[in-house]
Design a binder for these strands. Structure first.
Lengths: 341, 341
DNA sequence: ATGAAAGCGCTAACAA
DNA sequence: TTGTTAGCGCTTTCAT
C-alpha cells in the first residue's frame, strides 16, 4: 500500500507538505504542488480514511438502521438518506434490524466502534432504549425516523400519521361512507396507532359512531397480515362500504383479499391505501395517502448534520411531515340509499 | 472517549491484557478477565475499529455499488448481500451510482480510502473500467454482479439471461404464439442484450422467423420506457399476440400501456414479465421469469469472502444462476385459428 | 513556504 | 500469565 510517506519521499518533500497539498491546509508553492500531485497520480495514491479518522476522531460515515430495506417505505427513505449524506460527502452503512432489538443493539454497537459521524435509526418497538441513550450520552448525533422511542429526548422526523388517518377517513366520509373498515398493522408501532387515532378523530368530528369490529389490527405488517384482516372485514355480516389500508404492504394484501372474494373496486368496495408506490396504478388507480417519504429522509439527514455541527438547538426537535391525499379512482361516491342502509 | 488505555488503568492491568480479554488472543486469568470486563461495562467501552483497522490494514466493511436501490431488482439483491455480509461479521456501505460512471468512480475511490475488505459492484455501462482494474491491481477483492465489465478478468455472478429469454419465448411458443413482441431496456446493458439473444435463439430453434419490428429496445429501463415501447408494439398493424417484458419496471410500464389501450390480459394480449415482484399478483396473476436475485447476492458475497481469504482459484469465475419460469395466468393458449392468421 | 515530531487507539512481537 | 514498546498512516502544533 502506498502511503503518504512514500509519496513524500518520491516527491522529495516532507509528509506535511503532501498533506497540505491534498487538503490545502496551508500554502504550497506551485512547483511543489505539481510535483506532489504527479507522484500521487503515478502511484494511484489513496489517503487512508482510517488513519485520518483515527487522528481526527471521526469518519465520513453515517449509520442507517432500518427494519428492512425491502419494505417499500424504507427503500425510498434509504435512497433519500444516501443522496443527502452524499451531498455532505458522507457514505452510509446500511443495517437491517428486522424489528429485532438484539440486531438493532448489535448494529448500533458496530456503528459506534466505527466512530461514525452520526446515526439515523428507525427504532424497533421495545421497552429498552439504552443503546440509543448510550449514543446520546456519548454525544453521537442521532436522529430517529418514522418512530419515536418512548419518551427519550431525541430528534425525530416522522410523518404526521394522525393527519394521514384523518385525511383518509374524512375523504371517505365526504364521499358518503359511514361504515369504513380499517386494515392496519401492529398498533405497537406508533405510526399504526396514530393512523387509527386519526381515523377515530375524523369519525368523531363528523358525528359517526366508532364500531370496534371495523378496526382490524394485525400482529405484524406483512402483506399476509393485510390479506387476513381484510378478508375478515369483508366477510363480516355488517360489511363496510370502504376500506382504509394503513401501509403499502397492508394495501397489497387488502387488494388480494378483495380480488379473491371476487369484489370490484370501487363498485363493491372502496379502497384507500397508504404510500404512493410504483404499482398503485396497475389495476384500478389507487387513491392513497402519500407520506412524502423521500422528503422525510432529506429532512432527517439535514437535521443530523445540523446536530453534528452543533447548530441544532439544545432541546431535541420533533418534525412532522404532512402527508397528502392523492385522489385517483378506487373510492366511490355513495348514493343516499346505500349510505343509510 | 474511553480508550483501551483508560480501561487498562482503571483495571490496573496493561493495555495488552485488555486487548487479550476482548479478543481472547492469549490466556488471561479468570480474575483479571472479570475485572477488565467489569470496567469495560462500567465505562460502556467500545473499541475503535479505526485504530484496529489502521493497525491491521483493513476493516470489516464491504462496499456495495449498485445503480439504484429503488429498482426492485437491486433492493432484494442488497438485502441478501447485507444478510450474507452480516453473517461474516461485516457491514455494508451502500452507494447508488445512477448509471453514472463518474459517481461510480467516486464511490470506488471513497471505498478504497476506507480500506474496505472488498467491493461488490454492478458496473455501469462504460468503455473505461480503469477504476475497477485499480482495485484488482491493489488486491482489493472485487466481485461484479448482474453485469460484466468488458473483457476484464474478474469474478462475476449474474443471471443466465440468455436462458431467461429463451425460457420465456419457448413457453409462449408452446402456447401457440408465433408473433411475440419484446419490450426491452437498453441492450447496452448486457442483461438486456442477452435476454433478447435468448428470445432470438428460441425463435430460431422452433423455426419461427425473426421480425425486427417486434423487438423494441428502449434507451433506459424505466417504467416509462416500457410504457412507450409497449404502446408502439400494441398499436402496430401486425400486432403481436404476446408480449415479453424483460425487466420488472418494463413489465410495469407494459401493464400500464395494455390497460390504457383497454386491452385484457390474457384475452387480448398475453404478457410474460420479468422478476417475481410483490405486485405480480395484484391484477391478472403474472407469469414471470424469476432470476432468484436473493440467491445471486448470497453467491456473490460468499465468493467475495472466498477471494478475500485467498481461497478462490486464480482465474476469476463467472457464475451463472439459472432463472426459472413461474407460470401464472397472464399467458393464453392460442387456438389454431388465431395462431395461423 | 517547508519540515520535524508527537500522538490518535490499537495490535503484536518481544520480554520477563 | 502479564507487561513494554514499536509502529499502522495520518493531522497538527511548533519550529525554522
Amino acid at each position: 500500500m502506498t502511503t503518504m510517506k512514500d509519496i513524500a519521499k518520491k516527491a522529495g518533500v516532507s509528509i506535511t507538505t503532501v498533506s497540505a497539498v491534498i487538503h490545502k491546509t496551508r500554502p504550497v508553492s506551485e512547483q511543489i504542488t505539481q510535483r506532489v500531485l504527479a507522484v500521487m497520480k503515478e502511484y494511484d495514491y489513496q489517503p487512508s480514511t482510517l488513519a485520518s479518522g483515527l487522528k481526527k476522531g471521526y469518519t465520513n460515515l453515517i449509520g442507517l438502521v432500518i427494519t428492512d430495506i425491502v419494505h417499500p417505505f424504507y427503500t425510498l427513505l434509504t435512497r433519500s438518506i444516501e443522496d443527502t449524506a452524499n451531498s455532505y460527502s458522507h457514505s452510509i452503512i446500511l443495517c437491517n434490524s428486522d424489528e429485532n432489538i438484539e440486531k438493532e443493539r448489535y448494529y448500533v454497537q458496530v456503528l459506534r466502534q466505527l466512530q461514525i459521524a452520526g446515526i439515523i435509526v428507525v427504532p424497533t418497538y421495545a421497552y429498552d432504549y439504552s443503546h440509543l441513550e448510550g449514543l446520546i450520552k456519548h454525544n453521537i448525533p442521532l436522529v430517529l425516523i418514522d418512530r419515536t422511542a418512548g419518551k427519550m429526548p431525541v430528534d425525530v422526523v416522522l410523518s404526521d400519521n394522525v393527519q394521514g388517518g384523518y385525511k383518509a377517513t374524512e375523504y371517505l366520509i365526504s364521499l358518503g361512507h359511514t361504515r369504513i373498515g380499517v386494515v392496519s398493522f401492529s398498533d405497537k408501532i406508533i405510526s399504526g396507532s396514530e393512523r387509527i387515532q386519526g381515523y377515530i378523530e375524523a369519525l368523531k368530528k363528523y358525528g359517526l359512531s366508532i364500531d370496534k369490529n371495523l378496526i382490524r389490527i394485525a400482529e405484524g405488517y406483512s402483506e399476509e397480515d393485510g390479506y387476513n384482516n381484510a378478508l375478515k372485514l369483508l366477510k363480516s355480516k355488517n360489511k363496510p362500504t370502504a376500506l382504509f389500508a394503513t401501509s403499502s404492504l397492508i394495501t397489497l394484501g387488502t387488494l388480494m383479499a378483495i380480488k379473491d372474494l371476487g369484489l370490484s373496486i370501487p363498485e363493491d368496495i372502496s379502497l384507500l391505501g397508504y404510500d404512493d408506490v410504483a404499482w398503485a396504478k396497475i389495476g384500478v388507480p389507487l387513491t392513497v395517502i402519500d407520506q412524502h417519504n423521500y422528503q422525510i429522509g432529506v429532512v432527517a439527514t439535514k437535521l443530523l448534520f445540523k446536530r453534528k455541527r452543533g447548530l441544532a438547538s439544545n432541546n431535541p426537535k420533533m418534525i412532522r411531515i404532512s402527508p397528502k391525499l392523492i385522489e385517483r379512482a378506487s373510492c366511490k361516491k355513495l348514493l343516499g340509499r346505500e349510505n343509510s342502509r
